[in-house]
Design a protein around this nucleic acid. Structure first.
Lengths: 342, 342
DNA sequence: GTGAAAGCGCTAACAA
DNA sequence: TTGTTAGCGCTTTCAC
């Protein structure tokens, strides 16, 4: 691998000075069209790319974004939530000429030193933060260092930049759907209640019952944690107590709940109607019977990243807070009827 | 956010020179224990982290690894392959004080300019490359620039550094399992045949048949592409031709194949025995009946990264080629019997 | 419109 | 063992 060219070399080849080349590269005005063309030619011919380290050293901008996500999220959300989100982030980032660094942190108090290292490193211009749990020291840490960041999923703190889907309304609509089907003993298997998404979905469930004049019975609320196992256990508990409809706070739990229902000798849309959340794509393949809430996850990643970039470039009026609508997807045995979430 | 400290500041606070601080940070010998302690104290107290850009500028090492994966991979492998791999990569990278950059590239010929940009950028010391398809210009590009890289999944090129599972042997064992169950008309739904994994799994299927004296019948080979849709279509075709056993090259296809079988009015372990590949964790929840090949995907990411780091640091004897064993996981309605893959 | 020169924060050769 | 100094490759005043 021959030595890399630098600005000086390009300047020499184009018969101009280093600064002129720099101006051309950075699109500054005050370069004669003729010179600009000559320089661009050389750059293209030599396939020149300026050294990002040198550039960062002087501008203290890295053109790198981070995405920080608790390691747990990749196992909790066995569904493709994580890759989908990342896809949205990288797409937008790359479009705007940003690279993306990925940090999978183990959540919890002991994560603090790791966060210090990450945030103190001047490696990134800002970060997208996903799936924070209550009490995670990341957000306070970010605020303290006034780091640029946008959260995916509404945080407990106020006045932060975030994007989220309307979990509460989505859950409400899901449960109202069950009510409209004539179900009256509707249970729920909750997500992690130390995550806002889990709380919101539970509240939406309650909203729907209250609005319809149905009682909110604690025994019909099985606390889960978004995991497969908890869906199964939660459903077993609800079966004990008798239900004719269930709202599961995500599809992973919905699917293991289905297994529990079948093992109990009951049929799915008949004896117990089930609505899931997350739209794990696999679910549709396996379980055409499952009604589910579809989230625009990729869009979430894109919007977070767009906001972050504007924040970095000083053109975002904060706090930026976007709430995206969801869809309730109802399937019959063959096709799928899609209803907007409102 | 107050101005960041630099080496000079630390030096002043510790009453030494810039170079001594540098020596301490980089663990050079020839620093008196006393001085070292004093400097370390100041560094700890001030929470100092050296500026990576400046460091990179002079050492031309970034302490950043990349992971490049065709965008398609995140949709083809709807299963958690991708997040699991990434998890392995980031864990090892962070352990060794490397950051990780993520690039999701659209594969195909038009990806070439993107690759040039990525690889020409001096942003990374090396990359882990995942799921390359035949004809993708990435590998030639990497070789041309003699970039440090390790491939996950055996590449078509020879003499490269790679880690892979033993796809061929795993497929063979899967099919031998079907044969042992007494099946004689065993079909397969293949993966993408422009990916080595797809080819290997098909070859393993043939190996098993040949070794058992069964004929390899082209009509029992349905070409798929790892996608849900192709599993369904492929299975329909095989049903036309009559089979009593099927090896699907991944679980996504296996699951849609199950749907096709059921719609055809046949029972799964009874009429048609099915073996899948990839061990999509969801599969076990949905389909206790499905036998599947489990791959150590996270381990794959870890080993690739360990090798890459050794390569970067000049202590890897190349070519480094690691083939990991798989497991055939056979489930009965309750528990799971696990057999090693050989 | 263009060039000369200073300096970003670090490492590494060389002197002491 | 420690300090001095010369760059690494770029951006950015400041002259012209």
């Amino acid at each position: 691998m021959g030595r890399k060219l630098n600005l000086e070399d390009i300047a020499k080849l184009a018969g101009v000075s280093r600064s002129t080349v720099s101006r051309v590269i950075n699109g500054h005005p005050n370069v004669s069209p003729e010179t600009r063309r000559r320089v661009l030619d050389v750059i293209a011919r030599e396939n020149f790319q300026p050294n990002p380290a040198a550039r960062t050293l002087v501008t203290s901008r890295t053109q790198v974004l981070g995405i920080i996500t608790p390691q747990a999220a990749t196992s909790i959300f066995t569904d493709p939530y994580f890759p989908t989100l990342i896809q949205g982030v990288t797409r937008v980032a790359n479009q705007h000429d940003y690279a993306v660094m990925l940090w999978l942190a183990n959540t919890g108090e002991d994560a603090d030193p790791l966060y210090r290292r990450i945030l103190g490193s001047r490696l990134m211009d800002g970060v997208v933060v996903a799936s924070v749990v209550d009490g995670d020291p990341l957000i306070p840490q970010l605020i303290e260092r006034d780091f640029n960041f946008v959260v995916v999923g509404r945080p407990t703190f106020d006045n932060l930049n975030y994007v989220d889907v309307d979990n509460r309304r989505a859950a409400r609509i899901a449960v109202e759907h069950l009510i409209r089907l004539g179900r009256r003993r509707i249970g729920t298997i909750t997500g992690r209640l130390d995550m806002v998404a889990g709380q919101d979905r539970l509240n939406g469930y309650k909203d729907a019952l209250l609005a319809s004049g149905l009682p909110v019975e604690p025994e019909l609320i099985a606390e889960g944690d978004f995991s497969e196992a908890s869906g199964y256990v939660g459903m077993k508990a609800l079966l004990e107590r008798g239900v004719d409809g269930v709202f599961a706070a995500n599809d992973v739990m919905a699917i293991s709940a289905m297994r529990a229902i079948r093992e109990h000798g009951l049929s799915i849309p008949g004896d117990i109607a089930l609505v899931g959340f997350d739209d794990l794509p696999m679910a549709s393949a396996v379980t055409p019977a499952l009604t589910t809430v579809r989230q625009p996850i990729s869009r979430l990643g894109e919007m977070a990243t767009e906001a972050l970039i504007r924040l970095i470039e000083g053109q975002l009026s904060t706090p930026y807070q976007a709430i995206l609508p969801t869809q309730l997807v109802i399937r019959d045995s063959c096709g799928a009827v899609t209803r907007t979430g409102r």
